[in-house]
Design a protein around this nucleic acid. Structure first.
Length: 264
DNA sequence: ATGTCTCAGGGACTGAGA
């Protein structure tokens, strides 16, 4: 079973890219962030043609998350108790039945703008609430994947220029501590479970020719619970869509898990 | 180089957010 995440920076603009990538990469589940679409404008039919069912929590202009799945999505959650956040950033759903069911939790973490800003303080509070939610979800669903745009580069090896980014937003110690708090619940960063190298990024700024120069950060993550980590087969970052015309600034990240196929 | 991209309002360009 292949499970992927992609911040598309407007699904309206990027729908052709998502269609093309799904046809080529053949994910079973794809979590999207920054769809920037009100729910009534979600292109459900376009994905139905590709064999996907959809769950979504959107709004116009900003934010917005969605999950595409070949199997039915159930037990959908879009809000966290105690987190009065009108921004649509969280979407949880279950796929599959019984022993082989998997819980998918799609996150578009608050960006935070700059460490001295109100938005940064909000980011840390938001992460505290979400950590509590993830603790509850993991207790209820041992086979859980938490994936999305975390807007946090976990370690210096996830940053093209660690000294330039030292204690800057996306890399600061409080943000990294918050991420470690999530991992400490019992999740593993799937990419790092299989690849220790520096220089692998999932986002590059549109400015300064950053992609061409590989000036990026790895901020799009797929975290797996212990039960799924035991079955983790691969974890990849697909840079190719960043070379397509009018790309998102993020690229898709994907894992493959053994023993979760209906017919496998 | 405050360097690019997306969206909304309004009907050209500006501001917000990333």
């Amino acid at each position: 079973m292949k499970i992927a995440s992609w911040n598309v920076n407007s699904l309206n603009v990027r729908l052709p890219h998502v269609q093309r990538w799904c046809a080529e990469a053949q994910p079973d589940v794809l979590a999207l962030q920054e769809t920037k679409l009100a729910d009534e404008k979600f292109p459900r039919e376009a994905f139905a043609e590709l064999g996907f069912q959809c769950a979504f929590a959107g709004q116009k202009t900003y934010n917005g998350v969605a999950i595409l799945s070949r199997e039915p999505l159930r037990e959908i959650v879009t809000d966290v108790a105690g987190l009065e956040d009108p921004a649509r950033r969280i979407l949880a759903a279950s796929i599959g039945e019984g022993e082989r069911a998997v819980r998918i939790i799609d996150l578009y973490v608050v960006n935070g703008q700059a460490v001295d800003s109100d938005k940064y303080a909000h980011k840390l509070r938001w992460l505290t609430h979400v950590t509590g939610f993830l603790r509850e979800q993991l207790a209820q669903y041992p086979r859980t994947v938490v994936l999305g745009d975390f807007n946090i580069a976990p370690e210096d090896r996830d940053v093209h220029d660690p000294e330039a980014w030292r204690e800057q937003v996306l890399c600061s110690t409080p943000e990294r501590d918050a991420l470690r708090g999530i991992l400490g619940l019992g999740f593993t960063d799937s990419f790092r479970a299989l690849n220790a190298e520096a220089g692998h990024y999932s986002w590059w700024d549109y400015r300064q020719g950053a992609f061409r120069r590989n000036l990026g950060l790895r901020i799009d993550l797929v975290l797996v619970s212990a039960a799924l980590n035991a079955k983790l087969k691969s974890a990849t970052i697909d840079r190719i869509p960043r070379t397509w015309e009018r790309p998102s600034d993020h690229v898709p990240v994907m894992i493959e898990i053994d023993g979760t196929d209906q017919h496998g």
